[in-house]
Amino acid sequence: MIWVIGAILIWLALWALNIRLARRGHRFWVPVIFGFAILVLWEGTVRGLEISPIILPAPSQIAAKIATSTDVLWGDFVQTVLKGAMSGLVIGCAAAFAVSILVDRSPFLQRGLLPIGNFVAALPIVGTAPILVGWFGFDWQSKAAVVVVMVFFPMLVNTVQGLKESSAMQRDLMQTYAAGYTTTLLKLRLPAAMPFIFNGLKVATTLALIGAIVAEYFGSPTKGMGFRISTEVGRLNIDMVWAEIFVAAMVGSALYFAVVILEKAVTFWHPSQRG
């Protein structure tokens, strides 16, 4: 019981500290302390109520597991993230980008593709995973294929929308400069589309990890994060599952914030970036 009460007390103390920090506007420390407080609460509850590690391991146990099995985690990371998700993400985004540049020249195609793309982007495309695993085999190629299908439509819709972003006045200006199609595209319309493209990229990075992991549930060589999660759940090694979840969370957040940093660098001129 002491553990639980202690954890709640620490939680309250940290919350009080957060209230003081928030008044002074510490944008970085407040969420960090909040996250830390949740970990303390979790650890205290698991220890105090003696919850079996088969149900919910404590953060310290998960950390210990991560420390002792780095080589397995690294192997899974390479298989799922670098080979599956990354190659799929690059191919899917490049394909969507190319198609939207082509579609961009025809307003007819735009009007036809946008509603369909929007609709498809909302569908549970992860369901195609078993089909694509059947077509491309068990290795990372099939995972990349699932990721390509998943990221294609959100990227396409955002890029097509973004390319329409420049105003008639701006395009007229380019025309008075005697700029051709390519110049206008490169100097005006692509930069104007960047905020939309980055929105698409943010969606795509999360989808890429989901796709790569789900596809592994349907068949995989004996490594990969999805494979590990599904087999270790079956063997009740729940701490290993949480270790994989931790890696997945780290990778997901890292990818997302990489896109955010890139966005800040590329679209520094956009109102949303000039805090």
């Binding site: 969420p31 909040f34 996250g35 999360t206 999805g226 979840i245 997945a248 969370a249 997901g252 997302y256």
Partner: peptide, 17 residues
């Protein structure tokens, strides 16, 4: 200040895991 960043992070975690 405490919840919003975590809400964003929660969406970058692949839920399927």
């Amino acid at each position: 200040m405490s919840v919003m960043p975590w809400a964003v992070i929660s969406q970058t975690i692949p839920i399927v895991a």
